[in-house]
Design a protein around this nucleic acid. Structure first.
Lengths: 229, 229, 229, 229
DNA sequence: AATGAATGAGTCTTCATTCAT
DNA sequence: AATGAATGAAGACTCATTCAT
């Protein structure tokens, strides 16, 4: 068998010749995550449906059978990939602790938003898969993605809750507000996928974003909603 | 000819007996839009990939050949469907005219948001296709959807521009703000797909939404972003 | 109904408004042969399989149903077309009457060959259908075509027979010779399809052709076949 | 895996049990040519259009996917098949070297004609595909076939050229003559497809054929073409 | 642990033919 | 006589998955 080097080197791992048992366990995990990494790249590039198992194994430089040695199915590897990406994303978020006052809270939020934006803007694969390729695949994946967004919105909502308790947050529907914040973030990121460079870089963008979330778009005192009815 | 009644009656049209030539033209258009309507339902239910031409024709109660009499391909009918949905959506939006003062502008915006929310909350097929099933299909569809969102964000951005000229809108990055508003709206709608009833009904939701967009989430004067670092 | 003028005018007949019964018979035949003529053109251009009934009716400017009013099927119209072409071809051939001596026989043959070449070189549709498009379609058509060539070869063979009786023709296998003559003719014609202008015009070509048939290619007395082994 | 024995045993290859890597390469080539061989048989029997991929894989006893593992499409396998057949045919032909005199040239020609006739009369699949099934399929295949016949006629023409230089061949249009010889050969072969046994066996047929080519059909001195006019 | 040839269910698309008007 | 919308059988091709080696 001739080893065809995958063109996209980043996913191909060197083949060592050692065969001792201890390392074989390690190697197994390595191989797994290598293939997973290749799948990530491939899914980001072509989308779930357009990407074939053939693409993944070509990228990884392994045989078809090997793929199924590590993953049950194409669906399973994508599922697992989502888990990894979810974790990668959620690891960037800290609960906001409002007990140290408004200024500190603002700083924490800015850090959060900045970190998330930075991560996602740097890592287009992750962003693309979360925002595009994993959307609308089927009921199962949809539920999973819904779950993620529910968790994220929940985090935001709880921050709003504490903020309200501290007297920082206005009286509003925190559920709606948290969804709006989440959606605003997603759209900003999504836009940068289609048109990279159209928006400011992460830190400035985070400030801008947070400023609008906190204070809205109108000059204070200039505009009010008409009375209900 | 035996007419096999499609089980999903909503898409099946009655056969009239008129034979004048003029009506044949009408009939052709009717049949076209009937099939298009069935496709809309099917795509919303199963998504682009999972939906087969077989599903559409079963739903419509027509033969395979009939489908291809009216549409070039599965892709083509989906493409056309998107056009229809885009129009349906954009027809609900009016440019905000700020020349009649702040209160009137707020009213116009509220109407816009209310109308859009109402339309989309009532019409789950439309919403689901736009927000889920048309996402991440391939480069062509992605571009098309991007285009839609670009137009919508553009509308919002221009409203912000005029608002700023009138002194109503703060000094902020209108591009970012418009994307955020669009994204906030999408997320609110998307949430209602997964969990209908979780959010207030259209009018109340529109007020809440717009209130947050306009004034942000914090109590005025309580919180400021830290100085840039 | 709007009459879409077929682009290729040659096949479209004018629509008169008279409706008297007597002429309707005439018109029916006219319509028939018009459609047949269009089919001839279409089959020559695209071949039997690539040509669709759609092509023929477009060319003829009639509706689908009308086609089936005059012809049982696509196969049937092609079948009938072959009959017409066979007749067209065979009408150009006269039995050679050898009783008036060698010179007259040669003249008759030259006339025959010249007439056939002239007809076929002028009428590329006919040639193309006979030599290419009708070949290898299925057992039925094959048999029909075989039959034609058998008849043509038979004509030649009988001419050789009489020629031999008159002492003009050498002692040879007339069956083989007649096939060879037929095949030689076909190939010359076929070549002119792919590369028109490559060969001399009909009269000169006929002389050349017949010269080679009659006298072979070698200078008399220079070459003999080795004894049988 | 259950091996469904194809009914037409001639195309089905045995499964060996060897597992060394080298043999896998061999096996792949074997399988390829096995399928190609079955396709040859099937195309000869049913013709290009009537033959389905289903027929080929049934004959070969492989699954649909296997077919597409080795060949891009039905068209592609036929195309490749033509290449093989062309080679098979052309390999039987040697340039005639006229430098050793008339007798030797005649012997060479006789050998050529004999070999070609023998090959093609023995191998009805080859003959049928070349003369019937590959004819008039579409522009691409037509060009390919034209190319073959152009090459063959070219070979004959060059032989006539040398023959003429040696003073053996009469003054005639060698282009026309070469086409005639080629066509004569094709017709003789084609006739044997429809009516096997109607003609003498290869060696005798070759003598007869060549005799007529060389010396024509009339007794020397008995018949002349009339003067031009 | 790895390989890659083989599988076959599934899907789109075409087009000759029919028949209600 | 004419129309053309509707039909549906037929056929090419894909690709996730399996399993013998």
């Amino acid at each position: 068998m001739v080893r065809r080097e995958g063109r996209g080197g980043s996913c191909v791992v060197a083949r060592t010749a050692r065969a001792d048992v201890a390392s074989s366990v390690v190697r197994k995990e390595e191989r797994r995550s290598q293939v997973l990494g290749c799948a990530r790249k491939v899914f980001a590039e072509k989308g779930y449906h357009a990407a074939g198992v053939a693409d993944i194994i070509r990228e990884a430089g392994v045989a078809r059978g090997t793929f199924y040695l590590y993953f049950e199915s194409k669906r399973a590897i994508f599922d697992e990939l989502l888990d990894v990406l979810f974790q990668e994303l959620e690891s960037k978020i800290r609960r906001v602790d409002p007990t140290n006052g408004a200024e500190d809270s603002a700083r924490q939020m800015l850090d959060n938003v900045g970190r998330v934006l930075d991560t996602l803007l740097r890592n287009r694969d992750l962003t693309r898969i979360l925002l595009r390729e994993a959307v609308g695949l089927d009921a199962g994946f949809d539920r999973k993605l819904d779950e993620l967004y529910r968790r994220l919105a929940g985090l935001i909502e709880r921050s709003l809750d504490s903020g309200q308790e501290m007297g920082l947050v206005r009286d509003l529907d925190r559920r709606v507000a948290s969804l709006m914040i989440l959606g605003a973030l997603k759209q900003v990121l999504d836009h940068s996928l289609a048109d990279p460079g159209a928006l400011p870089a992460a830190p400035a963008l985070a400030r801008e974003f947070l400023g609008i979330i906190l204070a809205g778009v109108v000059r204070p005192g200039t505009m009010m909603l008409p009375d209900e009815g």
